[in-house]
């Protein structure tokens, strides 16, 4: 600290203290005087941790994918070799594109179901006052906290036709997309209902009345006024549902037998490289990266939408 004798004279106590103390104390002194610097550095450190924690696994997948499988033991942080062919081999060894299409189809079916039911429920919860509205909302909230594993065994029995009602056994849904779509739709539904409830609530009152006076029917007012205004919220809800279902592991793993013909999703495609004699780690890594691509694209396109859709609802409440 190059304090001149003049300054020392002006603030004798503070200056002499800084002069005489060690590095640690000088830094502390500076931090106290200019806390913004500290906050800025803390932000960098926090962001650094977060970025490393979330991106390192992805980088590690690249390292594994590029390393030929025979030299994959005892890996460091750089690839041992360069084998981009793994990304093509993935599709030759197993029909990985079929697994991906299965996943996309399952996510799409779920999204349609969740949006249809969720937007009707959200509209009613958001725009009408009726007896039992709050208890019903709480019930939905409570259900959303049930652990999915609790449903597994009953659902498995149901979907494999082992549950009989009035002598008619339940339909065989194991190995169909519905055995994944139905539980996942149900699990995602509460979140989407809450999201859309807050969204519909923000649409000013009286717009439907205005449209009806102007010449619309009830349904017409819904179609011309409420639907366009709620489109951003519904889009957010749809994207979220799609991502949640696409990324889901539990039911996706257990409700199908793992073959592409039986609607098995991406994760089974990745496990398909796990043979009894050998595990093709490089292909699993490559498949994982390819599997992430649809989500990465979706999030990149829609990230602004997702963030604003989520915060809009939250802030306005």
């Amino acid at each position: 600290m190059g304090a001149s004798p003049d300054e020392t004279a002006v603030e004798p106590e503070a200056e002499t203290e800084t002069e005489t103390n060690n590095v640690l104390e000088r830094t502390a002194q500076r931090a106290i005087q200019d806390p913004d610097t500290v906050y800025r550095w803390l932000t960098y450190v926090g962001i650094g941790f977060f970025v490393t924690a979330s991106l390192f696994p992805f980088y590690w997948l690249f390292v594994l994918a590029l390393t030929p499988n025979e030299s994959i033991a005892g890996m460091g942080v750089v690839p041992k070799g360069f084998n981009p062919g793994a990304f093509l081999e993935v599709f030759e060894v197993v029909p990985f594109h079929r697994y991906m299409l299965n996943s996309i189809a399952i996510a799409a079916f779920s999204t349609v179901i969740v949006l249809t039911v969720g937007s009707i429920a959200g509209y009613v919860f958001g725009r009408y006052e009726f007896r039992g509205r709050l208890p019903l909302l709480f019930l939905i909230l409570v259900i959303s906290y049930f652990p999915p594993v609790a449903f597994l065994i009953p659902l498995f029995r149901l979907f494999t036709g082992e549950v009989a009602l009035f002598g008619i056994s339940s339909p065989q849904l194991y190995n169909t997309p519905w055995s994944i779509v139905m539980p996942l739709s149900a699990i995602t539904m509460p979140l989407i209902i809450f999201l859309l409830t807050t969204f519909y609530r923000q649409i000013p009152d009286g717009l439907e009345d205005a449209a009806r006076v102007e010449g619309s029917t009830r349904i017409g007012a819904l179609r011309r006024i409420i639907v366009p205004l709620s489109a951003p919220g519904v889009a957010t809800a749809g994207i979220l549902t799609f991502i949640i279902v696409y990324n889901e592991f539990f039911f996706s793993y257990l409700m199908v037998n793992g073959t592409a013909d039986n609607w098995s999703p991406v994760l089974h495609g990745i496990f398909a490289f796990q043979g009894t004699q050998q595990v093709a780690y490089n292909l699993m890594a490559a498949a994982s990266i390819i599997g992430v691509i649809p989500m990465a694209v979706l999030v990149m396109i829609a990230q602004e939408r997702i963030v604003s859709g989520l915060t809009q609802g939250a802030l306005k409440e």
């Binding site: 000013p204 717009l207 205005a210 449209a211 006076v213 029917t217």
Partner: peptide, 20 residues
Amino acid sequence: LPPKDRNIAMVFQNIALFPH
């Protein structure tokens, strides 16, 4: 009759212009 067939027009307290 429903509102649309009554040949009326209405101005609302909260104005209720269609925001989009």
